[in-house]
Design a protein around this nucleic acid. Structure first.
Lengths: 266, 266
DNA sequence: CATACGATG
DNA sequence: CATCCTATG
């Protein structure tokens, strides 16, 4: 089972550039988790809404052109699901109108799976936005635990807008305390990992350096690989045991983020 | 003496495309009258503000990125001026904060010249805008008369946002009564011409058809030459006697308008 | 369709 | 630097 998560920075933009098509054709993922779709289904082309091979779910922000998330499932895969449900609501979530969660729940055999595509807030807009980012972290963490405690297999993929450790960021000193590398955010990652959740790619590559998923466009940081690893797959232990591999697709262009892929032996 | 008037639809855009440079190098006009510059001097490049061969005057709107006019004078020409003054104010003008007039007054020999670059209002935004467009017409007409009555040689060039007669528009029937071909606007042109002002190009080419200066971008009307002749040079009789020729430069790209050129034997 | 703007990242 | 938005023509 192949899963990819990608912050597309405008799904219409990556489609216009042909980059989304390239990814889908080359990888043919079973699940594609999307963040920052920046639009609504009504604004999207048939490729994004009536794909022959995928069921395409979106959760758009109320505010036009802002944030939003999505989740595609290969039809040949979803055909095997029982009782599949698409959700967008997580209890006690701030920013509930910003379309940050696209969540598919389904049964496969006797197991219930929860697959969540999440675009965590940036939090740099205002003091209020920063407080809501921290709330958002706790809200998601609590919900992940709840699903796991119910015996589900849980996968959370997306742009978490935080680099966990110094190894996950090109300029740790310069960014210490800044949005995206603030102690309070890093402490959340610590708590989540300490709580038994696995940062899949890092767990498989504990010592790998200079691997990032986001680069600042203003400074053309991608040219020099001055990046941040802020896009993750997090899974419960039981799911992690099934992981085959995970890789950042850093050759994929079209966005200021690159996709993260993982394969699962289900 | 070569004069060109051009509604550039954003002077930074025509510069970025290299089209303004092409026009200036190919034509080397003595005067270049500009409309819809859409910006301020502070936003402009050295090419637009510190040209080796031109003095470059601008009148920008208060509202950012909106309207505005300009006037370039070849330095070798302005060197012969006495008492040159750049003006932006015309008495009783509505829309006085929209930068619609860039006006150079100077003496050459014993004669005083007034050369005005004017971007007339479109008037289609609201009822209020329509009323102000008609006011603007009268304000300009009165001012032209005033200068002429003072014994000046007067040239007004710009986007007048009205097609005078059926011959001046590709689809007269469909646009009858619409903004830009409304009886009240056409009547203004009638009054101005009846008052001794010359529509220079039309006076030289009374029967020429299918010659236009503006084409709708939405419908890609330029491909089919479905256009409007709304950019003019108007001169007083005494100036008209000195006109050598006039032509619309319809091969000039970069804007939704093409430039109008005229040569004057001074 | 195209040039501007402003918000957001 | 790049995605959206809206206003304007």
């Amino acid at each position: 089972m192949k899963l990819i998560t990608w912050n597309v920075n405008g799904i219409r933009a990556v489609e216009r550039k042909g980059e989304l098509q390239k990814l889908v054709e080359a990888e043919q993922p079973d699940f594609l988790l999307l963040q920052e779709i920046k639009g609504t289904r009504e604004q999207f082309s048939k490729f994004l809404t009536e794909h022959a091979d995928y069921e395409q779910y979106y959760h758009s922000a109320e505010k036009k052109g802002y944030a939003g998330s999505g989740l595609w499932v290969r039809k040949s895969v979803s055909a095997k699901f029982k009782g599949a449900e698409f959700h967008t609501d997580v209890p006690h979530m701030p920013n509930a109108d910003e379309g940050r969660v696209a969540w598919l729940s389904f049964r496969l055999g006797r197991q219930t799976w929860d697959l969540m595509s999440i675009y965590f807030p940036n939090g740099g807009k205002s003091e209020q936005a920063w407080r809501e980012k921290l709330e958002f972290y706790d809200c998601i963490h609590a919900h992940m635990n709840l699903l796991r405690d119910a015996g589900h297999r849980v996968v959370v993929g997306g742009d978490m807008n935080v680099a966990h450790n110094e190894i996950d960021i090109a300029r740790p000193k310069e960014n210490d305390g800044k949005i995206g590398f603030h102690p309070d955010e890093r402490a959340w990652m610590d708590r989540v990992v300490g709580d038994g959740w696995r940062d899949v790619w890092r767990a498989l590559h504990p010592d790998a350096v200079e691997v990032y998923s986001y680069w600042d466009m203003v400074t053309r940081a991608r040219d020099r690989n001055v990046g941040w690893r802020i896009d993750y797959f997090l899974t419960c232990e039981k799911t992690f045991k099934r992981i085959v591999d995970a890789d950042y697709l850093d050759a994929q262009m079209g966005s200021d983020h690159c996709p993260l892929r993982m394969n699962l032996d289900v």
